[in-house]
Nucleic acid binder design. Structure first.
Lengths: 217, 217
DNA sequence: CCAATTATGTATCGATCGATACATAATTAT
DNA sequence: ATAATTATGTATCGATCGATACATAATTGG
């Protein structure tokens, strides 16, 4: 690729990952250039040459965070056979990621852009747009459930999506506050009770849906 | 009180409220001294003379936020006759505050200390301690429900509290993302279904609890 | 070898951060 | 009136913010 010129002395991908974890933990404005350069082990000159600016670096870090390896949401929604299983897997896989001891706690998209100076408000808008996209994906998956018959027609899928995303976003705060994996899954147990209470309408048949798990496997 | 000396030319209480709203909206590090002095209309000298430091000012702002006027949680938990009504009122009154157009959206205690430099981590710890205190209050109210008979003995009140606080914290993010008051209450409708699914055990009588509201008061 | 290209190292930019020194104004106690 | 006390206004502190200028090192293309 970049054959010409003096070769880069550091691993750009590894550096991006270090930056992602710093932004993830401390947020955009809570992460300074000196924190980034110290953690990566390069000078600010090299960082700017490789990534352009702090805002560009953050954008790349968010892209990395949202890539398939890091974000279990897409695969949970797409591969689960029923809408109920899709929601539950989305919640449980994300919860596992939120309390993973190898990475900062909670969701970067939720947590990294909340405390911003006016000059950097666009960062918050970008992350809010990503949350809106997740909301739309959940609604689409629920609508697919309606189309496929495992959700009764007439169900307010938008409200249902908002409810489960509220739980998901709340779990980011719980994770930041140190909650255990077990407790997170117990919370999800309770959140899934809503599904059974709402979807099992008296005049509708329930097609699929596994029983609520108790522990969290 | 402060009879001696030159009288203060600004309203300290009003200034504190302005500071509270700025910290509430932008977080601790997202609010600079110049933002504070510009919004209040005083010089940094006067601000330091009146409040000591940025950290002290923030502490007073959090105290104001947690005072009875601003925090409906305590009154909801204490005055509601049943545990179910206490939880539902806590959620609905807080949700109303989160989307109140006269104040920043969401909960200051949840949102203001998430993106911090290492030097200011104590701010995050202080707010986390307040969230833990809320958790303990909810558990205490649920335990009281067990003692008074409207919750079956053996109920995992700690898990129940974590669940409802997860929903409450998630509503702060939803509020930041612009959700309507109606949608917030619809989310709470769904959250309260968990109560009925868990508390109405087949071998236990339900003593109290109003039916789930649909719209939101 | 030489030119072109790309990255690095040093040193620093102007702006802003939170915080203060110092002199002055306005009030009360005596 | 004078001293003591408290607040204000001006001007600025050292540190850090994100970002760059400039010279040098290391590689490829010719």
């Amino acid at each position: 690729m970049s054959a010409r010129g003096r070769p880069r002395r550091f691993d750009r991908t590894a550096a991006l990952r270090v930056a992602m974890e710093l932004f993830w933990e401390h947020g955009y404005e809570g992460t300074s250039l000196s924190m980034l350069t110290d953690a990566i082990g390069i000078t600010s000159t090299s960082l700017y040459a490789a990534f352009g600016s702090k805002g560009e670096l953050f954008r790349e870090a968010v892209d990395l965070y949202n890539s398939a390896d890091w974000s279990p949401t897409d695969s949970a929604l797409e591969t689960s056979p029923t809408a109920r299983q899709a929601i539950e897997r989305m919640l449980r896989d994300n919860a596992d990621a939120y309390v993973d001891p190898h990475t900062p706690r909670g969701c970067m998209v939720v947590l990294a852009g909340l405390n911003l100076t006016s000059a950097n408000e666009y960062i918050g808008h970008r992350l809010a747009a990503l949350r809106r996209r997740d909301h739309d994906k959940v609604v689409a998956r629920l609508d697919r459930g309606v189309a496929e018959g495992d959700i009764p027609p007439g169900t307010d899928t938008a409200a249902m999506a908002s409810y489960y995303l509220t739980v998901l976003h709340g779990l980011s705060i719980q994770a930041r506050d140190g909650c255990s994996r077990e407790l997170a899954h117990t919370v999800i147990d309770r959140a899934m009770l809503t599904w059974d209470a709402l979807i099992r309408q008296p005049d509708h048949e329930v097609v699929a849906g596994d029983p609520p798990r108790s522990g969290g496997g």
